[in-house]
Design a protein around this nucleic acid. Sequence first.
DNA 1: GCATTAACCACAG
DNA 2: CTGTGGTTAATGC
Length: 226
Amino acid sequence: MKVLDCTKCDIKSSAAKMLNVEELKILGNHCSEVNFKKGEIIFKQNALSSNIVYLKKGLVKIHIAGPSAEQIIKISKPPTYLGIPTTFDEKTNRYSATALEDTVVCFIGLDMFKQFIKGNPNFSYEIIVELCKSELDSFNNTVNRAQKKIPGRVADALLFFNREIYESKEFYIPLSRLEFGNFVDTSRESVSRILTEFHTDRIIQLDGRKIEILDEQRLEAFSKRG
DNA sequence: GCATTAACCACAG
DNA sequence: CTGTGGTTAATGC
């Protein structure tokens, strides 16, 4: 296995920035970098999990196979950890992660990661900050998913891609209509309908998966109104 | 009762 | 895989 030099990594997590050179060398010795092509599974629900997974480049969906359908919990962009809640105290993964674009990931040895948590308060602090943000997002998502109607949820998703992921009014949805439905808790048909509605109302320009947001205010209105 | 919302089904690109 | 149309069930006014 190629030994990684984490001291030279310029895509460090905010936690890894708190490590000194010695610690970064240790990290490199317990870490392997892996490339995934679009569509490849990075780790799978119910499989044994023995690594912390750090997303370095690309885009990933976190999803769970529910009783009746697949549900996309969230879409993560780098830099972020993917497998903390599923790895720390659980033997198996409680969710899957799949690459939506060509993606680069670091698998980090769990034992060593725990040592950093216990030994370096600044490192731990940054990890906690990330976990807190993630939990807050999750709380908000729970409320939004339960209380907003479909147009509001679709608007939310479009604004999410616009602001959080691509930082551009123009982007390609990295999901099929079915996946989009799984992401906003609805059927692929409803997603299609709402998107074409937004298109005919000139709120967005729509061409397959290509989106251009024309009227952010009205999208925002749908999002707020629910 | 009537309108709205959204799911499910079927069929055509 | 995607878009559309018909049908149906639940909910609100």
